[in-house]
Each structure stands twice: as C-alpha cells, then as structure tokens.
Design a binder for these strands. Structure first.
Length: 1016
RNA sequence: GCCCGGGUGGUGGAAUGGUAUACACGAAGGACUUAAAAUCCUUUGCUCGAAAGGGCUUGCGAGUUCGAGUCUCGCCCCGGGCACCA
C-alpha cells in the first residue's frame, strides 16, 4: 500500500458509501440518549459557500461524529434560510426570478457542503421558501396574532431608502442598515409589529438557566436594557382651575363607582370638589339635573365640569344655559341613542332627542375633553368621536379598567380630568433637583400644545415649536446623534430644543413650577418619552441647561472630596474630579436641598421618595426596557406573505388556518416601490379577495415577513421536517428538543438568537413545545477574515472559495486546517500558506500507515507508546468537550511525531489513533482504517476510554528552583519521597552554585512538578 | 462615554498559580537531485559569550506569593457591542 495520498479520490468514494449506508441519519424515538447539535443554516447566496461556514460546520461535525461514536443518537441537520433581500437584489440585477436563483443556489450549496464530508442528516433538510415550510411560518404568525402579540400600528420606523423597506431595530447597526450599509431614515408607515417587549423580562431572567458564553449573555442583557426606577406624574398646571364638579351617571350616586376616589385624589391636591346627588338617578332627566346643579353647586370660570355617561348630558345642558366654566370633561357620554347592548334607556334617549346646541356650548368653555372606552358595552366609540368633533375636544380613547368606567378606581379618568406629564426616571432621589422638563418632539403633549389645548397662558411660540418638531422628524438617527461634541467642554453634546412657552408643570413634591421643553435628546420610544431634567446630576441635562441657561440645582452632595473616600459611585460611572469641576455629579451621595430627605444617602432617598409618591398617588415604582417591539413588515416580494385580509366591514381578518399557505404569487415585476408599498400590491389577483368572515370584497395584506421569520423556528421543523398536519409532531419534539448544542455567529446575538428565544417561549406558553428555552448551550465561532485583515467580501475581491481548497488539498485538510488555525471562538485572518502544514501532517500519516507492515506479527509494544496513545485519548476527549479543536489537532500531530520515532507500534494502537481522528478527518481515517483490513466503518467504532494506568508516569522530570528561578531539572521515580528528592536536588552542581554561602530558609515541594529552595 | 473580549517569538498560536514559547507556518543551513519542486535532517524568543554558562523576556507600572502569562489595583493600546435609554 505505497499509493500516494489522493484525497479527491478517497473523499468522493467514502462520501458515496456513507450516504448509501445512511450513517448520519437520526432515528426518532431511539432508545439511545439523544444529542441535538445545530449549526445556523446558511443563506444560499449566489456567492456560494464561504470558508466561514466550513469552520463552524466542520467543528460541529466533529462533535456530532464523536457523540455518535460515544453512543448518542445524534441529530445534526441542515437546511436553507432562503427568503430575503440578497436573493431578491441578485434576481433583480440579473433578471432571474428569485425562485430560480434560490433553487440554483441551494443546489450549489448542497454540492459544496457534501464535498466537505459533513455528516448532516440530509433527509431532514428544510428550505424556508418551500410553501410546505412557510405554511407553518404563517401559521405561527397567526398564533401570535390571535394571542394579541401581533398588531398593526402606524409608528415611525427605521426605513432603508436603498432597499426601500422597513427594518427592525435590531437590523440597524450604528444608524445604518446592517445588510447594505445605507443610512437609515425614519418613516411613518402602517406596519406589522410583534410585541416582543412583553417577553422582555423573561428573556432576561431565563438567561440564567442556559449555558451561553458570557459575551452573548451580556449583549442580550444590554440589548434588553432593563432599568428600574419610578414613573412620576407632574401636573400640567392650569392656574385658573380651582374646583371640580363631578356629575354621576344613570343609576349612580356620589358614593358609587370612581367618584369618591376621584374626589379624594383631587382634594388631596388642594382642589375643591363637589359631587352632587343628582335627582332621579334611575331615570335621569338632563334638564332637571342641570337645573339642580345650577342651584346647588358653585359653577364659575375656575370650575372644571366632569360628566360621566348621562352626567355628561347635564354638563352640556348647563353650558347651553349660559353657565361658563373653565373646562369640561365628558366621559363615555352617549350621543346617538344606539346602545351597543340594545337595552332601553328612555330618559337618556330623551336628552339625546332634545339635542344640544354645540355652537353655543363651545362659546361657554374653551377646553373640552372627551374620554372614550374601547370596550364599552353601551356607548359606541362613534358617539364619543362625534361628540369630540362637535366640541373640537381633546379626544382620548382608552381601555377602561372596567367597561364604561364602572369601577372604584379609574386612573384613566383621573388622567383625563387632571392632565399630567408622566416621566420615567432611574433617579427619583433627584426629584428635588428637577429644574425643567423635556418631552420628545413626538410626544402627544407637543401636538396638543400646538392645537392650543392643555395649556393656560397661551401658545407663544407655536411656529418655533412646529418647525423644531418637523426638523426633528426629518433627521436620521445618525444626524441626531452626530450633533456631536460640545466644543466648550469637549464632551457632552450640543443638544437642541425649544421651550413650549406657556406650558408649566408642577413638581409633585415641592410644588415648584417648571417649564417644559421639547428636545430630540429625549426619545419617544423609551420610558414615557418625557423626562424631568436634573442638570446637577445628569450629564445630558447639564449640557442642555448650560446651553439654554436653565437653572442647575444640586441635591446630591458627592462623597468627601478631601478624603477621596467612597469616590466610586454605585453605578461605577462618573469621574469625580471632572464631574465636580463641571458642576455635575451623577454618582451617589448625600441628599441636600431635598426637604425631609436631607442627610439621607441617595440610595435610600430613592426608596423614600418613591414610597411618598406612591402613597399620594403621584407616582410608582417602574421598570423600563430598551428593547423595542419588533417591526415585522417588509415591503418586498421575496418573503412570506403575512396571512391577513383587510375587509371594509370586518376590519382585519386573519386568513383561516385551512387556507394556509398564502402562496407567493408569480409576478413579472418584483422590484420594490418608492411608496413603501410591497410589489405584491400591484398583483390584482393576489390582492382582491373575499373576506373570509362576511364574504364581502376585501384585500390581502401585501407586506411580507422579515428574513428572521423563517429562521425563528427551523430547528423545531428538523425534528419532523415533512409533517403536513402540524409544524412538528409533539412526540418528536418531546424526544429531540431542546437543542443540546447550538453554534452560530455573534452577529445574530440580538437578532436571530433573541427572536427565536422569544418565539419559542411564546410557543411554550401556548403549550406547543416542551420547554421554555430552545437552546441548552450556545457557542459562537470567530469569523474568518480575509488575508488582508478585512472582512471577506465580494466587493473587496478577497473571498476564499472552499471549492478551490478542496480541489487542491482535499476536504480533510481544509477541515483540519480551519480547526487548527486559531481557537474556535476567536476571529482569525485566513492564511493559505498555513494549509500546507496540515497537508504535510496528513501526508506523513498516510506514509506512516502505508510503510508499516501491519500484517506481520509484532512484539508487544512498550509502555511508552501506550502512554502516547492514552494521553491522546484523554486529550482529544477533553478538547472535544471544551470545543478546543485547535489543540486537538496539535495533539494528533504531536502524537504522530512521537509514534514515527518508535519501532514498535501495534496494530491496535494504530487503529485507535484512527478512531480518534475519524471525527476530525473522516475520509482519511476511514481509508486507512479499511486499509488495515477492517470491514466495518471507522465511524461506527465506539469511542475509546483513556486508561488511568497509562496516564501516570513512573518517572518524572522535576524542576529544581532556587528562589523561584529554575536552575536544573531532575529525573526521578514518581513515587520518590520528598526528602530523597531534596537531597538529590541539593547535590546537583547547577543548584549548589546558587546555594553556596546562603542558608535555606524554606523548601517548597510541589509533587510531580518541582522543588524550590528559598535562600537568604 | 458605557459594557464585553483581548495584548505571549518574524507569523497563527500553546500553557489546572509551579520547567513560558507546545503544535504549525516562515526563515537559515544541510542531505537527496544534472537542476528545481517535493521529501528528510539540523537550527530558530532576545541578548552577552569561542564555549561552558550567564542575563533578560508574556503591552506598561505597582502589589499579593517561596513562585505570576495566569490573581489584585492603576495605566496604555487593539478588537467587538451599545450609543443622548433618563
């Protein structure tokens, strides 16, 4: 067997054998213990497989093969994540249908993957663009929809002007689209959004039960961004308001429903409140009730009139009869007489029939608020809307605590009666230091202000505010944050903003009046979109206050500067010296200028102030997350159609499950449009459908899903990839899930990894999957850079195609090299000259097996060889466990080097070596194994165990050191007692030289390692 | 700015607080060859020395320890993530 090593020939040969024998097929319900190894399935781009794919796939292939040999029933599947922009762009550019391009690319990828000898179970292959697959992607969407976790909202979203599509927050990296690098802008679009935020806390908490690398966990923790603090309400001050008169509903009384609660809350804030006992509550007469109020209550231009349901009619009637009031609030007041529950209410109907002179009413009061309940059982929303229109009122639509606001505590009513600005802060302890407020330009209070509502002294700078809001809307995120450094301080940012002149709020604890600003350094999407600015203790507020000469009021005294004790704040941030010079201290300290809290440590003040606010109903503990809801719409062709139909009468109607999948139609033109509409919207036969509910005319949703939709759950499908009745059989899921080992790229940490954890948790809540976490263990490979240190990219022309390496060196060389090149989780530049080292190793291995005559009887091998072998068994086993593939390959090389120098290597040793090598270099191991005359495959051998007796040495090389410096080494039997070793060591001339004239004060003996003399 | 990684020969890298530089690439010298490639052998951290041998060395500076690449503190540099998140 002196043939030359010809990898191309033997690799093809064995790949064929393995495929026909189905060595890598996973067996459902097998009695062996299961092991599910998963790699992120590739996106089949036109560029073909990348050496980066090979790195993680061959590493996990080694693990999968090793696990099989260790007696596990291994599932190591593969598939293709084929929907998405790259294919669509490629198709547009080359005028090929994406379907055709995808099929072609999948074919290429399959050929390439197979050429590497990866032991995937190809029978379970999935393709996310296959209707049999995406039927279930759509089905999962419908489950989310039914659970109220998918909704359509008109929100400003990230928009890529180049790809002409909306993007999720996670797809924007440093203000740019992660795929094409274009600067992302904002666009107001009606979008499908998934409420991933509802799972924020669990996604965070369950990170403690999974085995993920620390860097992955931290990235997810930061992305979810939980902050604990408080929400605090600042009353929007109207100095004209002095008293409230509350008129109850039909069947009510001053003691019923929310009236006593509302009364006491308002009184606590210093307002006069009257809740008259209206006559004939069971059969209210608006004229009679208005007359009663007119006579018994004090109504003037400092009064706010509040009417609940039929009480609202009395309010309207009073105004109609020339009573002037400051403000009127109408809560769920009927106007059409069409009651949703169809119950008769004749006296209420009388009032409606009499009608109201809205023009006259509007003259009596400048400020109307209409509060509607979205799940009212009696008053339709349209009644409230009509009323708001007639009165030019501020219109609020809320979901009441109980339908029609019939409950003891109704915060929504309180909010409507007494408008307040709610802020979120992590530092309630600095409440006494708030000197102004800032709201995001998108905050509703700004729009109200511009509409001349919710203010008192008048709107003095409407144009300035409107211009600012418009400018902020147009700015990209990059432009917002690139407003860069303040030249005066070198840090902080030159923030912009304008005051909403005429708008004032009241500090709930101090009663101080504070101006309100709008500035784009406050984000609408975080917290409440409004902050209390504490310039003395927040760098951003500080910079803003300095620029606009707003007052700065210190309320936290930093720890003692003179002693420099306790200078590190709890948060770990802040640099005392510079902060103090700047006049801004963001750390902890002692409270000053804070009334009853003076002298408290700030951490305690936080608790005390929150409690005080809670007691007075002016605030509460709150948690805020940076995580945003997941924008799920894409205005593109090559994606899963969102299975929803819009009907003029029924509104949004989900496609019935029996009608799934909603097939992607064949179209001529799949280029994205300028308008933000999907190209599907031009396909009449697709768009125009019958409503599944009422059979009336309706149209289909034309947005498609993002590329992450199909990859959310693909690992579930692998357990039962051909199931036509369910997304997977529950018994099979119970057997295979969760994934035991999942390897993928760091770039997916806050995308695919987070999304799929969320979807899996959701499915778990629906009782559809067996566990709350999909992946037991996650590992991450480092990316392979090009030789020039840049990212491999077609545009740089530095991409290495694995085909050429396989052709020149063989798949085994490529596999071993990629494992050898660096630690698995570390990024590394490709260096082709290093490939030769691995190839030389395989050539030497080939020669070693070819030149020994293994058929001849050989004498028993010496224990030295046994030791090499068992050391190798132990090393390879532990390296596979710890995914240290680079040192495993080094160990194979080392051991071969050692064996080459030995005369007596038994056939058994030679065989075991190949068994160990089989997971790493499967082809050559198989060829040499069969060359030794074995009939069965090397891959079906069981994994050897290292024998302890060969791992211990009978002689050891000990280091002899003087004062920690090694001076000599000593060859001794491993069981030699300490005193004999010491005596031996003392006799060594090299040691003696350093001991001469000194006294030994101590001797340190480390068994098996060294002896150290400490001398003076 | 904040949060993670990381810094070891010419290069990729190895090292449970115990002989730093395994394994490999590259380089130099040699063998084989008419020659080259391939292969094999030798050398290869720096430095002083003819040699024996000595000194120095894991980004920098301190500390703990009999002993530190490894642990602690401060600083510098590189990579990644987040980025006005209140």
């Amino acid at each position: 067997m002196a043939k030359a090593y010809n990898p191309q020939k033997i690799e093809k040969k064995w790949q064929k054998v393995w495929e026909t024998k189905k060595f890598s097929a996973a067996k459902d319900f097998d009695k062996r213990k299961k092991f599910y190894a998963l790699v992120e399935f590739p996106y089949p781009s036109g560029d073909g497989l990348h050496v980066g794919h090979v790195r993680s796939y061959s590493a996990l292939d080694a693990v999968a093969r090793w696990k099989r040999m260790s007696g596990f029933n291994v599932l190591y599947p593969i598939g293709f994540d084929a929907f998405g922009l790259p294919t669509e762009n490629y198709a547009i550019k080359n005028k090929i249908h994406p379907r055709v391009a995808t099929d072609r690319n999948i074919k290429t990828f399959t050929r390439q993957l197979k050429s590497i000898g990866l032991s995937f179970d190809w029978s379970r292959m999935v393709d996310t663009t296959d209707p049999k697959y995406y039927k279930w992607t759509q089905w999962i969407f419908l489950q989310l929809y039914k659970a109220g976790l998918a909704y359509r909202g008109e929100i400003p979203i990230n928009w890529c002007p180049k790809c002409k599509t909306g993007l999720a927050n996670e797809e924007v990296i440093a203000g740019r689209h992660e795929r094409c690098g274009t600067v992302v802008t904002k666009k107001l679009l009606k979008q499908w959004v998934i409420k991933i935020t509802k799972y924020a806390d669990r996604l965070l908490a369950d990170l403690s039960v999974v085995d993920y690398p620390e860097r992955v966990k931290t990235q997810q923790i930061n992305w979810i961004g939980k902050s604990e603090g408080a929400e605090i309400d600042f009353e929007i001050w109207d100095e004209a308001v002095k008293r409230f008169v509350i008129l109850h509903c039909k069947g009510g009384s001053p003691q019923s429903y929310f009236y006593p609660w509302l009364k006491s809350r308002l009184e606590a804030l210093g307002y006069e409140v009257e809740v008259p006992d209206l006559p004939n509550p069971e059969a209210p007469n608006d004229l009679e009730q208005a007359e009663y109020v007119s006579q018994h209550c004090k109504l003037d231009e400092n009064t706010v009139l509040v009417g609940h349901s039929s009480g609202g009619h009395a309010v309207l009637r009073l105004l109609e009869q020339d009573r002037k009031v400051r403000k009127a609030v109408l809560i769920a007041t009927p106007t059409s007489g069409k009651f949703l529950d169809g119950q008769p209410r004749p006296t209420v109907l009388d009032a409606i029939t009499r009608g109201f002179d809205y023009e006259k009413i509007r003259r009596q009061c400048q400020d109307f608020t209409v509060l509607a309940d979205t799940h009212d059982y009696a008053v339709p929303l349209s009644d409230n809307q009509a009323l708001a229109r007639h009165l030019d009122a501020k219109y609020l639509e809320v979901k009441a605590a109980e339908p029609h606001f019939l409950v003891k505590k109704e915060t929504q009513v309180f909010d409507a009666v007494l408008p307040r600005l709610r802020v979120f802060t992590t530092r309630p302890d600095t409440l006494f230091g708030a000197t102004y407020m800032v709201v995001a330009p998108e905050h509703p209070v700004v729009a109200e202000y511009l509409k001349h509502k919710s203010h008192v002294q008048g709107v003095w700078n409407a144009k300035e505010v409107a211009d600012y809001v418009e400018a902020a809307r147009k700015k990209t995120d990059i432009a917002r944050s690139a407003e860069d450094k303040d030249p005066s301080t070198g840090s902080g940012q030159a923030k912009t903003g304008v005051e909403l002149k005429g708008l004032t709020v009241k500090n709930p604890l101090t009663g101080e009046f504070l101006p309100v600003w709008t500035a784009d350094y406050v984000m609408m999407g975080y917290g409440t979109g409004a902050i209390m600015a504490v310039p003395a203790h927040d760098e951003r507020d500080f910079a803003f206050a300095k620029k606009y000469r707003l007052p700065i009021k210190p309320v936290i005294k930093p720890p003692d500067v003179a002693t420099r004790d306790n200078l590190i704040p709890e948060s770990g941030t802040g640099h005392l010296a510079t902060d103090l010079e700047a006049g801004c201290w963001i750390g902890e300290g002692t409270m000053i200028n804070s009334g009853p809290c003076n002298g408290l440590p700030s951490s305690e003040g936080r608790k005390k102030i929150t409690e005080t606010l809670e007691q007075r109903g002016l605030g509460q503990k709150a948690v805020s997350y940076k995580l945003r809801d997941w924008v799920f719409s894409r205005q593109h062709y090559w994606g899963e159609p969102i299975p929803v139909i819009h009907c003029e009468d029924c509104g949004e109607v989900p496609v019935p499950e029996k009608d799934l999948p909603v097939l992607l139609p064949k179209v001529k033109n799949y280029e994205p449009t300028e308008t933000g509409e999907s190209p599907l919207s031009a396909i009449k036969s697709f768009v125009n459908v019958k409503c599944p509910k009422c059979k009336g005319p309706a149209h289909r949703e034309t947005d498609t899903m993002p590329n992450w939709a199909g990859s959310n759950w693909y690992f579930i499908r692998y357990t039962d990839s051909k199931n036509a009745r369910a997304f997977a059989d529950r018994k099979k899921m119970d057997y295979w899930l969760p994934v035991d080992l999942y390897n993928g790229g760091m770039e997916h940490t806050t995308l695919h990894l987070l999304y799929s954890r969320f979807v899996y948790k959701f499915l778990f809540d629906q009782g559809l999957v067996p566990e709350p976490e999909p992946y037991k263990k996650r590992t991450s490979h480092g990316i392979i850079l090009a030789a020039d240190g840049r990212k491999m990219s077609k545009s740089f022309g530095n991409v290495v195609n694995p085909d050429s390496i396989v052709k020149e060196y063989g798949a085994d060389t490529l596999r071993l090299y990629e494992m050898f090149i660096a630690p698995f989780d570390q990024m590394v530049p490709w260096a082709e000259r290093g490939v030769i080292g691995v190839q030389r190793f395989l050539e030497r291995l080939w020669k070693f097996y070819g030149t020994n005559d293994w058929t001849k009887k050989r004498p028993p091998e010496n224990s030295k060889v046994q030791k090499f072998l068992h050391k190798l068994i132990a090393k390879i086993t532990s390296d596979l466990t710890e995914m240290k593939f680079n040192t495993a390959v080094a160990a194979f090389m080392e051991t071969l080097n050692a064996l080459e120098g030995e005369e007596m290597v038994s056939r058994k040793t030679a065989e075991t070596y190949l068994v160990l090598l089989a997971p790493f270099a499967p082809h050559i191991a198989e060829e040499l194994w069969r060359g030794l005359g074995n009939k069965s495959s090397v891959h079906q051998q069981s994994w050897p165990a290292a024998d302890e007796k060969y791992l211990t040495q009978d002689t050891l090389t000990l280091a002899v050191a003087v004062n920690g410096k090694v001076r000599d080494t000593l060859e001794v039997p491993s069981n030699m007692p300490q005193n004999e070793v010491e005596n031996l060591a003392l006799d060594r001339p090299k040691v003696a030289v350093h001991l001469k004239g000194k006294t030994i004060v101590r001797t340190v003996f480390v068994p098996g390692k060294m002896v150290n003399f400490v001398v003076k």
